[in-house]
Design a protein around this nucleic acid. Structure first.
Lengths: 161, 161
DNA sequence: CGCAATCATCAGGAAACCTGTTGGTCACAT
DNA sequence: ATGTGACCAACAGGTTTCCTGATGATTGCG
């Protein structure tokens, strides 16, 4: 394994040349990296990556998305998402069918196998999130989610008018 | 461009099959993805990626880290980090020298060019973070940082004892 | 009808990961 | 002092994820 952050570079070291530098974006990235590392270990036995798992959960919530919509949701190009979609399709976790109302698009749905795979992971993922939030009160968790949603909205494009 | 999340898959759509599913890890990931997309656009003219930029900022705060320490900080293997380190070295943004007290390790430092590159990006990065936090009060920003740090700590290895 | 926008996809390539292995160095306990 | 194990860097070889650029099919609209 040896993936976990050991003790050396953690904590607050000695030679910090402090400044009024962006710190919150870095804090978010650190939490995301740590969470993703744990997620990767959880889903590795199933043979998918944390990225693929996330895409599957998005499809569970929003059945019938197209590959292009999925790509925008993850801030990648349609070509990048196509790689992952074909991989998931080859594994039999999703199926695609022509949109009857828009013959350009292929709508993606989870297969039974896809639903089952997600269901098997739910408990572990909930436990992981619970571990992450263990130090926070219910009130603080709600606030955190609210703050994060506001950050996401603020970063949406559409600078003005 | 065309990288920004358009309006279709955003917002709260119709067919949400809601459940008590992990939501905060997903919220964090979404903010990180959005921030990274913006960062990538900012540093693209300089010819580095958001990942490389982040590594440089880590080195600015902690001069003299080894490649292995850097790897742990980013939750990747030493081999993965080696790719990026050699890229940054080839570009003249960092230098490596043998640790006099531990002849295994190579300590990494920013070059003048590396420091200058970071200095040029500081204003834009601060502006980006300000935009992200525009909707939050000072108090809420402090709370958000505190909550995130607690999440990161809770995800650190060392389950018990 | 023509034209721009959108979706999927092919081609080719770069970046960022990985496993596995080797050799050098260090700490520590036989 | 001699293992032995942990650590660091690096080489080899490979996969996944992402990119730009181009193509063809479809759609909506002026």
């Amino acid at each position: 394994m040896a993936r976990a952050a050991s003790r050396d570079s953690a904590g607050e070291p000695a030679n910090v040349a402090e400044g009024p530098r962006p710190s919150l974006m870095y804090a978010i990235k650190q939490v995301e990296l740590a969470a993703r590392a744990h997620m990767d270990e959880l889903v590795k036995p199933v043979g998918i990556t944390a990225l693929q798992y996330t895409a599957l959960t998005v499809l569970r919530r929003h059945d019938g998305l197209s590959s292009a919509q999925l790509a925008r949701n993850s801030f990648v190009t349609a070509q990048s998402m196509a790689d992952m979609v074909t991989a998931l399709e080859r594994r039999g976790l999703i199926v695609r069918r022509r949109d009857p109302e828009n013959r350009r698009a292929l709508l993606i749905s989870l297969t039974c196998a896809g639903h089952e795979l997600l269901a098997e992971q739910d408990a572990a993922m909930t436990a992981l999130e619970e571990r992450m939030l263990a130090d926070l009160t219910s009130r603080q968790r709600l606030d955190l989610e609210d703050y994060l949603n506001r950050c996401r909205a603020a970063l949406s494009d559409r600078p003005s008018h």
